[in-house]
Design a protein around this nucleic acid. Structure first.
Lengths: 148, 148
DNA sequence: CAGGTTGAGTTTGATTTCCCAACTGACTGA
DNA sequence: TCAGTCAGTTGGGAAATCAAACTCAACCTG
């Protein structure tokens, strides 16, 4: 049986390997350079090289030259990379709530002045998207959700 | 330099290994049994055994006996596990938008009747949480975001 | 201009994980 | 009795990971 075709799986093919999301977190934080990313994530340098290369190849990051002599590059987010902010926000929220013990290492303040409590809502009605509020709208026949 | 303490990293310690999130996706889909999860994710059985064990140990899944003779178990989501729905939704959305080619394998319909377009908003003001709308509200001194 | 530092990786060799297929054991159903 | 299901476990080879050392080019310092 072939595994389910699924955008979650596709997404994880690109950013699901170890260190990828942490490297992206650093770029979101404004750390665009190899050594900063390596130090702040704890990834070993060879693996980080491979991850950054892959993220560039997949269009999540862009490798941009910021100095000619010596040639130096920095990593910046593409549109696709910026869109991963939502994933990182929800992962952080889940980690804050269910994993991190003690004081939170980081708290975001939203532009409205409050501490950010992220919520996933339906763009059409603005109500929360809970597991119970969702039903399958369309799939190819023969690929039911509960297929074995 | 020690890596940054961060709830994203903590979250990934628990659900960041390969197959963990896909296994959880299957449980969300109503597939609670080992063989179904193995078949639908494509994970090898030994790795899946280890992942499920870890998710149970971390309180994301619960292993529940549903038959005594023979002893059989199924995996169900805890509260912590259900809270991961948001992460999966955003990963799916990102995958839909930036990775999956061709028709989407799955479309959710929200209870409001529309196709779900998930949006991350601030629970206080209801406006979207974009990278630009966020500033650091509190951190321990000496751990600035851009620390190297 | 010798000596040290920075930045961005490569290389190396040992360790750890992963993958796959086969196997087990307890049972069911024909 | 014989095949099939379920939930793993075992074994061996392939692949990925780790940490530390190394490279190379350029810059900085006195």
């Amino acid at each position: 049986m072939a595994p389910r075709t699924c955008s979650v799986a596709n997404a994880l093919e690109v950013v699901g390997e170890r260190w990828s999301l942490l490297a992206l977190r650093e770029v979101f934080f404004g750390n665009h350079r190899f050594d900063q990313i390596a130090a702040n994530t704890g990834a070993s340098r060879d693996v980080l090289t491979a991850r950054l290369k892959k993220l560039v190849a997949c269009g999540v990051l862009e490798r941009r030259q910021y100095s000619e002599h010596p040639p130096r590059h920095e990593y910046v987010l593409t549109e696709s990379g910026r869109a991963l902010n939502n994933v990182l926000l929800m992962l952080k929220e889940w980690g804050d709530t269910y994993v991190t013990k003690g004081p939170l290492p980081l708290v975001w303040e939203h532009s409205c002045g409050n501490v950010l409590e992220p919520l996933v809502v339906c763009a059409h009605c603005g109500r929360e998207a809970t597991p119970e509020s969702l039903t399958r709208a369309a799939t190819t026949p023969g690929d039911p959700i509960s297929a074995t």
